[in-house]
Structures are given as structure tokens and as C-alpha cells.
Design a protein around this nucleic acid. Structure first.
Length: 452
RNA sequence: GGCGCGUUGGCAGAGUGGUUAUGCAGCGGAUUGCAAAUCCGUGGACAUCGGUUCGAUUCCGGUACGCGCCUCCA
């Protein structure tokens, strides 16, 4: 069986053949650290974490690199607003990011190169581009990539240069030769954060860091390059241009892009202001539920976020957790085979989740272990059954107006009424509790309750 | 204007040229003082028009609607 990956550049599923038989290099564009991560970031984290986990399950030695963009105008202006040094802001946001991804059960990348630590590599790369005519310095001191020097420009996005210029909404800087040329090095104005360079003091353009850092860590050509949907253009197109113009080699062999997260039919984004941060979500839902919610859709399709959708996911996921075994024994080889078949088809996690439910309807130790074994490859079931439900209940208790002791008191009163065969009173108490999210269960050993 | 994607049952969401996706919700039953949970069972779908085909939700083409990118955004 071969693994198929949808390659954005080829615009179709391709058999995955790594450069080396056992080793895979994957580079994912990470966060610009000036604010908290939102669900869209979470989706990219979870999507590529799942890809990496599965490739490792498949026996590959995966070198997962994800950069941190800690040089950026938004960072500088946010830091200035707060009156702090920009590195203070980025350090704080990086901590938050690590905290968030850990909660989502994302494994840390093997390497997290930071732009600030790689300025010299970027300058070296720009040097090569200037030397071979693919870049030039304008009168303003800014250094630009010369798009006309790279005939394949637009190949990732299936765009022609002429079309792009016609529809361009960008203001053309006077010292660009071509409006599609993009900046590699921005010269610093008075008071701006700057690094010294052969082009004068300044800061790198947005795209160059990923070319420099990916080639640094994985080589001129590597297997997979991934990122969020909004990076396809211009970021990844420009990465290809500047990397391939410098090296003459194919840059990334497979391109993977996650789908957007939507809110009310619109993309969740910083500019629309319709985002919800992961941190906010963690106050409402167990992080495993959020991961499950993301995995319920295929990584490439758009996913609509709503409280209701997450609540549905919570119900569904809880049922799977309920079906987990106390300890892992041998899973069903048929189930593992099916799992691999679905995942080999461009990481079809929704189909795998359907399989988990099919397994959950079979009440055997083998199928219960299959659920756990398969789910773990997807990064699910990080908490044990009891811990999961306890954490979930704690989350709900924090939002509830009723304390545990108040509930216990009401339940005792109801018990007394039931003993007296006063079912009207007993049912009134129960209905009252249900309206406050407390569900009672009368079992053989007495009444238990949980928060819904 | 250019490039691209989507439209599946109440909702979410896979997939397939002829056969049950799956989940949530609903309905019926078992169970229960009544419930809840659980278990069993069950109805319900492929935007629209045309083409190819013995047969299309699935392939091809048109239309409508929605969305994304072309500007910072994962």
C-alpha cells in the first residue's frame, strides 16, 4: 500500500516517495508571535501534528521543523503599544503558543528555528540572489526579489504574472522594477529595529526567513512543506521563487495546505476580528474535544466553528472515551489495517473516526483496544478515561452556579422524598437540577450525578 | 478582472458508476416509580439543467448560489 498525499503544486494526490527511504524532512510555517493563537492556528498545529504522528507510525524517521516568526512589523508595533522590548513580547507569546499546543496534544517539533537567530543565513541567501541577478537594491535601500528572473513564478498558485499585475491592489513602490517584486530586506528608518548588513541596517522581509531556515535545517531540497491556507500566496510562492532562484534545485517536493476555519460562513482571521483564541476555547471545552472536532473534518476542507458544533463533538468524543479499555491489550489487526488504508488516502481522519465508532459498537476487549491504539496515533485519548471525565466535570463546575455540596443537599432531599413515595417533590428537584445542567442517574447503588 | 474550492438526510461529515458511511439530533422498543445513561431497532440525502452510460449522487459540460486567494493573516 502506498501513501498518497494531495500536493498543492501538482493539484492532485500523488504517491508519496521520500527522498530517502526511511527519512522525511518536513517544514511547516509557524506563527508570527505577536498575539495569542486562535483556532485557525490550532488547526494547522493539529493537522501537521497528525501527519507527523502518522508518518512516524508508518515507520519513517521524521524531522519536523516549524519556524517561529519573531521579526515582523506587527510585533514591533504591538511591542511599542505596550511599551516593552519586542523580545519581551515574543518570549511571552512563544510561551503561550507552547502551552496551547501542548494542551492540544501536539508533539513539539524537532526544531523551532527563530527568525532573529537566523538573520545572517538570510543575508547570505540574499547575497546569492543579488549575485546571480535575481535580486537588486532599490534607491530606498530596500532589496527586492526580481520576479522576472524566475520564469516559473506563479506555479504554486497557477497564476500568470500579467494577471496578477492587472488585479493588483498593492501600491507600487517607486523603486521596484516590477510591482510583483517583493522585498527581501527592508532598510531601517530612524528608530526602527534593525540589524546591520551589507545592504545597510534593516530587517528581513517576511518570506526570506522560511527559505533560509528550511534550507538550513533540511537542505536545499526537502520532502514536505506545509502551512495554513492563507500562506499559499504570496508567502509560499515567494519562498519557491527565492529558494529555487538561489539554488537551482527543487525547493519542496510536496506542498500541503490546511483548510480554513470559518465562523458564520467567513474565514476566521485576525483582520476580520472574528477569531476565538485557543485559550478561550479551553475554558469551555476539554482540549481533547477540540482536537477531535478538528480531526472530524478532513484537513484540507473548510471547517465551520460554532459552539454548537463543538458541543456535538463533545458528546461524540465522550462516547468514544467511555468505550476505552482500562489497559491496552492487542488491537485488532483488521482494524489497524483499515486505519492505515484510510490514512494512506491523504490522511482521511474523518473516515478513521467513523471506524472508531464502528469499533465502539462492538463490545470486546480487542475492539476497545483498537480504539485506543488507533486514537493515540491521531493524538487522541491523551487522558485516561477517569481523568478525562474528571477534567471535563471540573471545567463545567467552574462555570456553574451550583456547588457540589449544594447539589448533594438537594439530592438528599430528593432521596427522602422518593423514600416517602412523594414523586412530585422528587421530580421537581430533579427537573430543577436538569435546568441548571445537572443530570441525575438513579442506579442500583444510589443516585449519581454529572454536569452536562 | 484573474486563479481556485465547495454545494450530500434537521445539523456535522466521509464515500461510491449499480450494494448500510459515521456521529449528533429525531422516532419506536427494552430498562426505570418517572427519568437519565445504556442497549436494540428505525425513517431521512446526494443544488440545478443537459451529456456519456444498460445504469450517475459519483464521470463530462453549462447554470445558480456560497466561499477562499490575488493586501497582513494559519
Amino acid at each position: 500500500m502506498s501513501l498518497q498525499i494531495f500536493d498543492t503544486l501538482a493539484r492532485e494526490k500523488r504517491d508519496f516517495q521520500p527522498m530517502e527511504a526511511e527519512k522525511i524532512g518536513i517544514y511547516v510555517c509557524g506563527m508570527t508571535v505577536y498575539d495569542r493563537c486562535h483556532l485557525g492556528h490550532g488547526r494547522v498545529m493539529v493537522a501537521f501534528d497528525t501527519v507527523v504522528r502518522y508518518l512516524r507510525f508508518r515507520g519513517f524517521d521524521v524531522n519536523y521543523v516549524r519556524n517561529i516568526t519573531d521579526v515582523d512589523d506587527k510585533i514591533f508595533s504591538r511591542a511599542a503599544e505596550r511599551g516593552v522590548d519586542f523580545s519581551e513580547l515574543t518570549t511571552e507569546m512563544i510561551d503561550f503558543m507552547h502551552h496551547d499546543e501542548k494542551k492540544l496534544s501536539c508533539l513539539p517539533p524537532n526544531l523551532e528555528p527563530r527568525a532573529t537567530a537566523n538573520i545572517q543565513s538570510m543575508l547570505n541567501l540574499i547575497d546569492r540572489l543579488v549575485a546571480n541577478g535575481a535580486a537588486y537594491q532599490g534607491h530606498s535601500g530596500d532589496v527586492y526579489f526580481r520576479v522576472s528572473a524566475f520564469p516559473a513564478y506563479g506555479k504554486l498558485n497557477n497564476r500568470k504574472l500579467d494577471d496578477m499585475i492587472a488585479g493588483a491592489r498593492i501600491v507600487v513602490a517607486e523603486d521596484k522594477e516590477n510591482s510583483a517584486d517583493f522585498v527581501l530586506w527592508k532598510s531601517a528608518k530612524e528608530g526602527e529595529v534593525a540589524w546591520p548588513s551589507q545592504f545597510g541596517p534593516g530587517r528581513p522581509g517576511w518570506h526570506i526567513e522560511c527559505s533560509a531556515m528550511s534550507m538550513n535545517s533540511l537542505g536545499d531540497t526537502f520532502d514536505i512543506h506545509g502551512g495554513g491556507p492563507d500562506l499559499k500566496f504570496p508567502h509560499h510562492e515567494n519562498e519557491i521563487a527565492q529558494s529555487e532562484a538561489a539554488t537551482g534545485c527543487t525547493f519542496a517536493r510536496y506542498w500541503m495546505h490546511a483548510g480554513a476555519v470559518r465562523v458564520n460562513e467567513e474565514k476566521m482571521s485576525k483582520s476580520l476580528g472574528n477569531f476565538v483564541t485557543l485559550d478561550q476555547l479551553f475554558n469551555e471545552f476539554h482540549p481533547e474535544v477540540i482536537r477531535f472536532f478538528l480531526l472530524q473534518s478532513h484537513y484540507r476542507s473548510a471547517i465551520s466553528f460554532s459552539d454548537d458544533a463543538l458541543t456535538q463533538a463533545e458528546t461524540a468524543y465522550s462516547r468514544l472515551v467511555q468505550a476505552l479499555p482500562d489497559e491496552l491489550t492487542a488491537p485488532s489487526s483488521d482494524a489497524i489495517f483499515e486505519f492505515q488504508k484510510f490514512m494512506d488516502d491523504d490522511f482521511n481522519t474523518p473516515r478513521v473516526i467513523a471506524l472508531l465508532f464502528e469499533l465502539a459498537s462492538v463490545d470486546t476487549a480487542e475492539s476497545a483496544s483498537s480504539i485506543l491504539a488507533i486514537g493515540r496515533v491521531l493524538g487522541l485519548f491523551a487522558s485516561k478515561k477517569e481523568a478525562f471525565f474528571a477534567q471535563q466535570q471540573a471545567l463545567k463546575a467552574a462555570k456553574s452556579g451550583l456547588s457540589d455540596t449544594a447539589i448533594d443537599t438537594l439530592i438528599s432531599a430528593r432521596e427522602k422524598a422518593r423514600k416517602d413515595r412523594d414523586f412530585t417533590t422528587a421530580d421537581n428537584i430533579r427537573d430543577d437540577l436538569i435546568s441548571q445542567g445537572i443530570v441525575l442517574e438513579d442506579g442500583a447503588g444510589g443516585t449519581s450525578w454529572y454536569r452536562k
